[in-house]
């Protein structure tokens, strides 16, 4: 019990301090907040002309999720690379706390920023463009947003674990940015993707989360999609956890914790 409380406290404090670091850096804040807004704005502008309600929801939500994904995919891997540069990665590893307990709240902090930017985007759409996304099932919609962002955070966690071992894998996060847009069906319907890509998009949790959001907005039931999204997110987390131990040992063998 005591250990659980300890772990929860650790996660809480690291999450809080990480948010503080984000808040200090104007660049990071910009990346995480403004980026999704720009995406969504262009989407609203393009699709407003059309006047199709369903399409507006599709585009607006997709664009916003797309921005969050971009910020998350790149930030998760770059963050750890930064820690390597500043020498703190070694200190994190040298500490007795399990590394997964340090990385998870970092990803969580990014998810928090993602959530914030989603809210800002929706408000922005409402007050700057007079577009209110009509949501039929509010609670289903909110749950879908939460699980999408949580699943993205878990994916960020998985990415950051790999950065510990592979010095160059921060580039992986950047490389995943654009494929993620397509895979998740953020902006183009999944139906138009070639068949061989579809299995990939089915194991990409945000696909399901976003589908849940759209269904909830349109008044259909989002719960199955949410459940799949959660299951995938949990799977990412478990894989990350299992990998973190092995990759850490491997990093100690291959001397990849520091720069030299």
């Amino acid at each position: 019990m005591n250990r659980v409380v300890r772990a929860a406290r650790l996660v809480g404090v690291v999450w809080y301090l990480q948010l503080r670091m984000f808040a200090v850096s104007a660049f990071e804040a910009l990346m995480q907040l403004i980026w999704p807004m720009i995406f969504a704005t262009s989407a609203f502008l393009i699709f407003r002309v059309n006047g199709d309600r369903e399409l507006l929801i599709f585009a607006g939500l997709g664009a916003s999720a797309m921005g969050i994904w971009s910020a998350m995919a790149t930030a998760a891997s770059n963050l750890l690379q930064e820690e390597r540069w500043s020498g703190t990665l070694e200190l994190l590893v040298a500490a007795p706390a399990p590394l997964a307990l340090v990385l998870a709240p970092v990803a969580l902090a990014m998810a928090t920023m993602g959530l914030l930017s989603m809210v800002v985007t929706l408000l922005w759409a409402r007050f700057a463009f007079g577009i209110s996304i009509p949501v039929a099932d509010i609670s289903g919609f909110l749950v879908s947003i939460l699980v999408t962002i949580a699943a993205m955070a878990m994916l960020g966690f998985l990415l950051s674990v790999s950065v510990i071992r592979y010095r160059t894998s921060w580039a992986l996060g950047n490389a995943l940015e654009f494929p993620g847009w397509l895979l998740g069906g953020f902006f183009v319907p999944l139906a138009i993707l070639p068949d061989w890509v579809k299995p990939l998009s089915y194991v990409f949790a945000p696909t399901w989360g976003l589908a849940g959001m759209r269904d909830a907005a349109a008044g259909r039931s989002p719960w199955l999609q949410c459940a799949i999204c959660v299951a995938l997110g949990v799977a990412y987390g478990v894989i990350g956890l299992l990998l973190s131990k092995r990759l850490l040992t491997s990093a100690r063998r291959n001397a990849t914790l520091s720069l030299t």
Partner: peptide, 19 residues
């Protein structure tokens, strides 16, 4: 190196106290 530049001295210590 080895410190979080964007945190205060006290927050740096808090971080590691927790770890």
């Amino acid at each position: 190196r080895g410190l979080y530049e964007r945190l205060s001295a006290a927050d740096n210590l808090r971080y590691f106290a927790e770890l």
